[in-house]
Design a protein around this nucleic acid. Structure first.
Lengths: 197, 197
DNA sequence: GTCTATACCGCGATAGAC
DNA sequence: GTCTATCGCGGTATAGAC
């Protein structure tokens, strides 16, 4: 993409796209997706609305692009966790990975949990790999998804994500939050509590 | 049904308002708040947008009005729970009341947890009684709100609410869901599990 | 007191000039 | 690649019919 004469081309194209996504994420976390207009993004970049539309055909595409990296990470975590042989190890792997993801992408997660635009984008992004949406729950529930296990899994995933993204936790550093969430998650899923990494 | 002048006057006001809120809640749960326009609400009622605007000065007021009954119930639950003398009883009371509320108002709760418009409305509605927003957490955390307790409380409230409102639980009847959530909540908050009411 | 007609402005989105 | 111009729809607002 950046070959030869394309210094300007590389900057105008890919770099503007990157700047746009950075700006969008910042504005999204400040005002929500709904509360962020394309005009605001364009102004922050010093271009017009139509220029933004050159890079993304619709606002939804921006939302999707913003959430994509985190979703790919989540997909990788689920895949890797499912490779573990013992069920306990699967859950441990998934729990640690999920929580780590939530902590590192706190701002995004907060958005994720409170914005239907983001939820829509997420659902679209995982159109191909629906395995992993159900896989997440499947790994936690085991082979026999009885009511109690299903409810527990839902409470765990939703609760850990929302608590991690909550403004009330913003003051906590990553280490502290991660350990606190891990302990709660372990208790919830019936895993023995152990090493404080 | 006849549009006689007297009957229209008697029926038009309060009843239209009620019908409007019922319709709004239905459309909100179907399409989300953002995805429901005043035009859609007006069409469903057989009136014009301006007629809707007569009953509510802004869309946010509709959202607030829709969430208000559940919030009042929650407020009552917190108040009553705080009157319990033993801390264990406070938690038990709060947990049971909260979960019962979530189960009975599932559709609203699902909306509540995934729509910034609703979240905004909720924050506005409790302007006067901010006691109870913090009171909810305060009752769960006790006097010493250390990190672990705070995180646990957040995971519990958010997780139980979102799990209860999740489409995945829609097939469960109230009794079953309530008991499943109660058991998870008790384990999470370190309460002994007991009677299946 | 309840509703209709109408207008305003900002939003997401499209078409076409440079 | 970026711009200007324009469109339709959304929430909001007012004047006035009944």
């Amino acid at each position: 993409m950046t070959t030869g004469t394309a210094e300007a081309g590389a900057r105008g194209a890919a770099d503007t796209r990157t700047r746009l996504l950075d700006t969008a994420l910042r504005l999204f976390t400040e005002h929500g997706v709904e509360g962020t207009s394309l005009q605001m993004i364009a102004d922050a970049l010093g271009v017009t609305k139509a220029a933004v539309y050159y890079h993304f055909k619709a606002k939804d595409e921006i939302t999707e692009a913003v959430t994509e990296p985190a979703l790919r990470e989540l997909d990788a975590i689920v895949t890797e966790a499912s490779k573990q042989r013992r069920r306990g190890a699967q859950i441990d792997h998934l729990l640690a990975g999920f929580i780590d993801l939530v902590v590192r992408h706190r701002a995004l997660v907060a958005l994720f949990s409170s914005d239907p635009g983001v939820a829509r984008a997420v659902e679209k992004s995982i159109h191909g790999s629906e395995d992993f949406k159900q896989g997440l729950l499947g790994l936690l529930c085991g082979d026999n998804p009885d009511t109690a296990a299903m409810v527990t899994a839902h409470v765990a995933l939703a609760g850990l994500a929302m608590a991690g993204g909550s403004p009330a936790m913003a003051a906590l550093d990553d280490e502290t939050l991660r350990e606190a969430l891990l302990e709660v998650g372990r208790r919830l899923l019936g895993r023995p509590r152990h090493r404080t990494a």
